[in-house]
Nucleic acid binder design. Structure first.
Length: 922
RNA sequence: GGGCGCGUAGCACAGUUGGUUAGAGCACCUCCCUUACAAGGAGGGGGUCGUAGGUUCGAGUCCUACCGCGCCCACCA
């Protein structure tokens, strides 16, 4: 007798204990092992601001399953963990925090503020890492990276310099997406468009020196303050007479020309467009084509600036209202119609973004996209599910240059420098207020800082690009170097994640040996095997990693991309903290246990489909864990000391039940492997669930109770349990570890065990059919009991009539099974259908079953049979018409036809048997 | 304006390349505290697979149109 399991499964006692021991034994660590094939995953680094939500739980459970599965299959499996500095998000969090202390980043200044961010990061930045541990993630924690680590930052700057030197990074003056709240530029992907119910305002623009006017339509009337033209389509007959004339811009009283441009759609609005080159991308293009004036009317915070005349100082939306009022007063507002249109919003704070003309740093994407596109087209990288390839390729096809400069402080500072000595306009930034620089005085860095809202002074100065502070090529001094105050887009560091996490480009002057190892490791583990992530970041991250992989490593960053679904609540809304509909994974863990959370999640999540959750759904996993526990408990309770695992079972020596469950086990394993290899994890979980619960527990364990004292029975019970536990381990790591250690105390942790091999020779279809016959008869008997209100405890006798020799043989050999499972006291075979019987009856598996029932309602019984007969007749006639169809016989594959004929015969037999019984009933 | 996903049992979902009478889970009904498990066991009811066509010997599965729901992309003011 082995050490028994506790009567109640208590996940609380085991999760922490096992996780600690896994970590202490370095089970998650992977390194170069030339005897093994590498398998590697880099984690999508959660933001340092992040706290674990269901999306993370799903994402990381998937990765953990793959990692554990591969480890057990003999791969050197590495899961590289880490976090992302999340520039804007983190800066926002810390700004809110210090605001509560009554200060602001402006008051603190750059240096002090960054100190605060680092402090915050030290304190809270590893929250999510801790939470991933409670999820059970087998990450190689000793490798944990952060995108602002010194080494990692070196990679980021290196990449900037290399791309600049290849002329793939440039500075340019363009309309970018500006978030007035975060006060920074955003990439196009960071400003998603949402449909907004707005209005289309029709405004009269009077012609100069004339009572005539032209009507323009706009959704953003406030931008009229920056209008420098009105445009019409050259082919629009209505406006021919206006060409070359001048309009007096209302409110500003500015004279602006009427121009013609093909861009204008005569069908839309009035066919006349106000042109605001500094605040609209299309107008900007027109401005360039027609040499118009570019008038910026906004401060970076969204208030109108001095170019806005009377409206200077007011917020953009207040200005809109005021302008509408003023226009109305002047009878220039012709009409207002409701109009739905797409408006860009900041992906961090959801503020309406403002198209804003400014000089920013860009990456030229087209050259980078070429190999990245090809790799997916040619299948070097595969998406699962496949449909995402189209989305990816479409984006690649229409790729735009990437705006990478951000006007915030938290991030990798752009390695561009300007000499304060040689550029007089910068002098002010290197001199302390009200005085000159004293040569002997140590000049503090703070004095070399250009405030972000003054970066326009850099617009015309040629930068010096250098990872470290350079000397000026003109004055040859480095003393007055001022670094570009802007930082890089967070994704400009994330896109290097698959190789920068290994220490690329290995510039550190640390010990040579260490560096050599790092390089070898990169060679060993790169390209990584699979990337597991959410659809939202295909453009932000996946696509860019592929481009960076080719550009800097000359190869793909990963072979497979597994895109899982979005986690939603059960009404279909995306789960998010701001909507208040989220279920906290930690709550679920506390209530149901980590394994229940994982098993439920993965069972629900069909590949690539969105996941709809409610708290109750986690009962599924909890119930299964409970079942697993109790089955294990039962088996352990019944083991003799001498029972050993790992027996090489010989089919000939096994009874039906044993041979059956081993056959089922091996078929299950085959299906499981197939599902896992193709990322159909829900199916994998489902296959295991079905096998363990509905085959092993429901049937085999029940049958095993008959011969529980026999060594063969015990060996099979133990063997199937052990191997099921191994197979379940990737899905439910904690409970399987606990059971494993109780079952095989000497074997070491589950994760280090080899994955069970399929024993092809034990899979036996014929035998499974035999067992199915037993099961079918058993179910039929239970059914007869249920229909006739016979208590389970009441023993019954059963008579079977069959002309099928095989059936008779199987059922007589395994009569004990039936007796046990259906509570039969005596089982006899009769040579004909009993006459004038008063038995409940059933036709199943080629047999007629009879069970004497006192006071049987014969009428009722006949009625039941009549129903079955008519149903059978319907089926048979359907088959007859099919089988008499010449086209069918000609065109369907012969084996299908044969199957159909056989099925027809079976139905016919069943029908005859039912009728025979019917006739025999009194 | 393009593109994608989804409409299957009361609910929320599986259904891999077309092939017997479409599946488990939860919920529901009946019975059972049978010595692993009531977070359990046994049995049961419930679906013309969104609609209409088409291809095919055969369609939940492929094609077309339409109706609903959701998502993504796009510079129509």
């Amino acid at each position: 007798m082995k050490e028994p399991l506790a009567t109640k499964y208590s996940f609380k006692d085991i999760e922490e204990k096992h996780y600690r021991s896994w970590e202490e034994n370095s089970l998650f660590h992977a390194g170069i092992d030339s005897r093994k094939t590498p398998f590697s995953i880099v984690i999508p680094p959660p933001n340092v601001t992040g706290i674990l939500h269901m999306g993370h739980a799903l994402n990381n459970t998937i990765q953990d399953i793959l990692i554990r599965y591969k480890k057990m299959n003999g791969f050197e499996a590495l899961w590289m963990p880490g976090t992302d500095h999340a520039g804007i998000a983190t800066q926002n969090v810390v700004e809110r925090k210090i605001a509560r202390e009554g200060t602001s980043r402006q008051k603190l200044g750059r240096e002090k503020f960054l100190e605060r961010v680092w402090e915050w990061k030290q304190e809270y930045g590893s929250t999510i890492i801790r939470q991933l541990r409670s999820l059970g993630c087998a990450c190689d924690w000793q490798r944990t990276r952060f995108t602002m680590d010194e080494e990692y930052s070196d990679a980021v700057l290196e990449v900037f310099v290399r791309l600049y030197e290849k002329k793939l990074i440039y500075r340019g003056n363009y309309i970018i997406n500006w978030c007035p709240r975060c006060q920074t530029a955003l990439a196009d992907e960071e400003a998603p468009h949402k449909d907004v119910d707005g209005f289309l305002y029709h405004i009269k623009y009077p012609l100069k020196d004339s009572p005539e006017y032209v009507v323009v339509a706009t959704t953003r009337p406030e931008t009229m303050l920056g209008d420098t033209a009105v445009a019409v389509n050259p082919r629009d007959g209505r406006y021919q007479h206006l060409l070359g004339r001048t309009v007096l811009l209302p409110l500003m009283e500015r004279e602006i020309p009427i121009i013609e441009d093909d861009f204008v759609d005569p069908e839309f609005g009035t066919g006349a467009v106000k042109v605001t080159p500094a605040h609209d991308p299309n107008d900007y293009a027109m401005g360039r084509r027609h040499n118009l004036q570019f008038i910026n009317i906004l401060h970076p915070d969204g208030r109108c600036n001095e170019n806005a005349g009377d409206y200077a100082g007011s917020d953009r939306f207040e200005a809109r209202e005021a302008i509408l009022e003023d226009l109305k007063e002047r009878r220039l507002l012709l009409k207002i119609e409701p109009h739905k249109h797409a408006v860009g919003h900041c992906y961090r704070c959801h503020t309406v973004i403002e198209p804003y003309l400014s000089k920013q740093w860009f990456v030229k994407m087209k050259p980078l996209s070429i190999p990245a596109k090809k790799a997916v087209e040619e299948g070097t990288i595969k998406f699962y599910p496949e449909r995402w390839t189209k989305v990816y390729l479409n984006w690649m096809e229409n790729i735009q240059d990437w705006c990478i400069s951000r006007q915030i402080w938290w991030g990798h500072r752009i390695p561009a420098w300007y000499c304060g000595q040689c550029n007089p306009q910068l002098k002010v930034y290197i001199e302390p207020k009200g005085g000159r620089v004293d040569k002997d005085e140590k000049i503090s860095l703070a004095r070399f800082d250009i405030p972000l809202d003054e970066i326009t002074v850099l617009a015309d100065i040629e930068p010096i690009i250098s990872k470290t502070k350079p000397c000026c090529p003109h004055c040859e001094s480095g003393d007055y170097m001022i670094q570009d105050p802007q930082v890089l887009d967070t994704w400009f560091s994330s896109w290097l994640w698959p190789f920068a996490t290994f220490g690329w480009p290995f510039n550190q002057k640390t010990e040579d040996r260490k560096q050599k190892t790092a390089e070898d490791e990169l060679n060993y583990f790169y390209p990584t095997s699979v990337l597991v992530t959410a659809p939202e970041i295909i453009f932000f991250w996946v696509a860019r990693m592929i481009m960076a992989g080719f550009e800097f490593m000359g190869d793909v960053p990963f072979r497979d991309v597994y895109i899982h679904g979005t986690v939603r609540d059960d009404t279909g809304k995306k789960m998010s903290k701001s909507l208040g509909n989220s279920i906290d994974p930690l709550d679920v863990i506390a209530e149901y246990g980590t394994d229940a959370l994982r098993f439920s999640l993965i069972s629900i999540a069909a590949m690539g489909q969105d996941v709809f959750l409610s708290k109750e759904k986690f009962e599924f996993g909890r119930n299964f864990c409970n079942k697993l526990w109790n089955a294990s408990r039962f088996i352990l309770m019944n083991m003799d000391d001498k029972t050993v695992s790992g027996v090489d079972f010989k089919k000939e020596k096994l009874a039906l039940a044993e041979a059956w469950i081993l056959s089922r086990f091996n078929s299950t394993l085959k299906n499981l492997n197939k599902a896992l290899e193709t990322y159909r994890l829900n199916e994998a979980a489902g296959v295991l669930y079905e096998f363990f619960w509905h085959q092993f527990c429901d049937w085999y364990i029940e049958l095993a109770k008959l011969n529980i004292g026999e060594s063969n029975t015990q060996a099979v019970l133990l063997s199937v349990l052990e191997r099921s536990v191994l197979l379940l381990h990737p899905f439910a790591p904690f409970i399987t570890e606990e059971i494993w250690q109780k079952v095989t105390p000497q074997a070491g942790p589950v994760m280090t065990q080899p994955w069970p091999q399929v024993e092809e020779c034990l899979i036996d279809e014929k035998l499974e059919l035999d067992m199915q016959r037993v099961i079918d008869v058993c179910v039929a008997v239970r059914n007869m009991r249920s229909e006739n209100n016979i208590k389970p405890k009441e023993k019954k006798v059963l008579q079977i009539f069959t002309e099928d020799k095989a059936a008779r043989e199987t059922l007589s050999v395994y009569a004990e099974y039936l007796k046990r499972l259906a509570n039969i006291s005596e089982l006899t075979f009769c040579e004909e259908v009993p006459k004038k019987t008063s038995c409940a009856s059933s036709v199943v598996a080629g047999c007629q079953l009879f069970m004497p029932v006192e006071g049987l309602d014969v009428g009722c019984e006949k009625e039941k049979i009549a129903q079955q007969v008519s149903q059978l007749r319907r089926h048979i006639s359907r088959k007859d018409s099919l089988l008499s169809n010449e086209n069918y016989l000609k065109k369907a594959p012969p084996e299908v036809v044969e199957k159909e004929k056989q099925s027809r015969r079976q139905l016919q037999e069943e029908l005859e048997k039912l009728e025979a019984i019917n006739n025999a009933l009194k």
